[in-house]
Design a protein around this nucleic acid. Structure first.
Lengths: 143, 143
DNA sequence: CATGACGCTTACGTAAACGTCAACTCAAAA
DNA sequence: TTTTGAGTTGACGTTTACGTAAGCGTCATG
């Protein structure tokens, strides 16, 4: 029947807390993956007894994890990136050192963006070529 | 920067050839990796007896392979991309079908570029925050 | 009360992308 | 001619990022 009642506790507690399933559904990942990220110290949800409780902050971290993966970063590298974002939370240790790391990562990211731009350009050229071939042969059936 | 197609076509009529070591040194990969890519049909150098001989076209393909990897594409996906570039070489089969695939990949690439731009923006914000914290605390001791 | 549905941990399995090592070929150098 | 150096083919090992199955606890509903 009303499976939503299962969310009753979360509803009472707060609007900003999520079960493992909530996050899985929201980001299309498996519980196994989330537990694995936790074992790798990428997310650290608090516990209600055994059960994991995720906050909005955990959500944001997960978002970054999945983004990082799409760019070919390893989970270890992603953990580094995540640590950079933690600075806003009040941690002050070795701030300037971390700043260096951040600037490095920033350069890396910008270089990657240039690369992807180059690939996009090449691919657009190729597509132009193919379109010409189709036109010349009068076989153009695609927009 | 010249695009990959230009590189590949320059190979036409040219007699520039490379050993496996040449390519390894040029792109900082191991022979094992190149042989593996070959087993996955990403590069197909011709043989002089047993030995592999790579052309400029193979070089261009390798460049694309390594780029693709940096963006988290699997070798299987990269093979698809490479096949798109092969069209310039005279293959005409199922042109319009391939065009569809190419357009799809193009969208995917553009979306990734937007994502990476977002990440860059976030990181720049974080860096700004850290710089402020350093300034306010007057603890900026490391360059 | 029992039966799922969901979650937990522990542990082994797996696919991708190579690394590593052994054993061989083959041509050039010593 | 022996050695050396570069290249080759298996075959097995390794790391990453999970999948999968076993076995258990916990509720909420039939």
């Amino acid at each position: 029947m009303m499976n939503q009642l299962a969310d009753a506790q979360a509803a009472f507690g707060s609007d900003e807390e999520f079960s493992i399933r909530d996050l899985c559904d929201a980001f299309d990942v498996t519980p196994r993956a989330l537990r694995f990220y936790e074992s790798q110290e990428l997310i650290m949800p608090r516990r209600d007894g055994q059960r994991r409780i995720y906050t909005l902050r955990d959500r944001a971290r997960l978002k970054l994890i999945l983004r990082g993966k799409r760019f070919g970063f390893s989970l270890a590298e992603i953990r580094e990136l995540l640590n950079l974002y933690d600075l806003g939370d009040g941690q002050v240790t070795q701030l300037s050192l971390t700043l260096e790391t951040a600037l490095g990562k920033l350069d890396e990211l910008k270089e990657r963006r240039e690369e992807i731009t180059a690939v996009i350009g090449d691919l657009e050229n190729q597509i132009g070529l193919v379109r010409n071939m189709l036109r010349e042969r009068g076989e153009s059936q695609v927009s």
